[in-house]
Design a protein around this nucleic acid. Sequence first.
DNA 1: GTCCTGACGAGTA
DNA 2: GTACTCGCCAGGA
Length: 106
Amino acid sequence: MNFFDQVYEVVKKIPAGCVMTYGQVALRLRSGPPAARINISPQFVGWALHANKAGSGVPYHRVVNKDGRLAPGYAFGGPGEQKNRLISEGVKFIDEDHVDLESCVL
DNA sequence: GTCCTGACGAGTA
DNA sequence: GTACTCGCCAGGA
């Protein structure tokens, strides 16, 4: 169980229609179960997801940066695809590129 | 075996 | 208010 898997576990727990920021995930890992607690910077959350292969069952399109903006174009077939998945899951967008973080604060 | 990089965020100047 | 720097861990070259 490395920090990779822990990131995946947290992301997997994000319900459909909800989004979480990198910072939120990192914070959750830091304040999670002591046995699994790791000091992680938000940067590595994204990096772990990037290292993960798309299709591993990890809905990492639900992870956005603190502004609620999607990854520049490193996800799936591009930001459009990620956005598409979020919309089809019922995630609200306050802007063309910004998801509504208030719609589901975990 | 070692060095650099990498989807970010928070703090300081 | 804006811009820059540092920190975190693991994988790849």
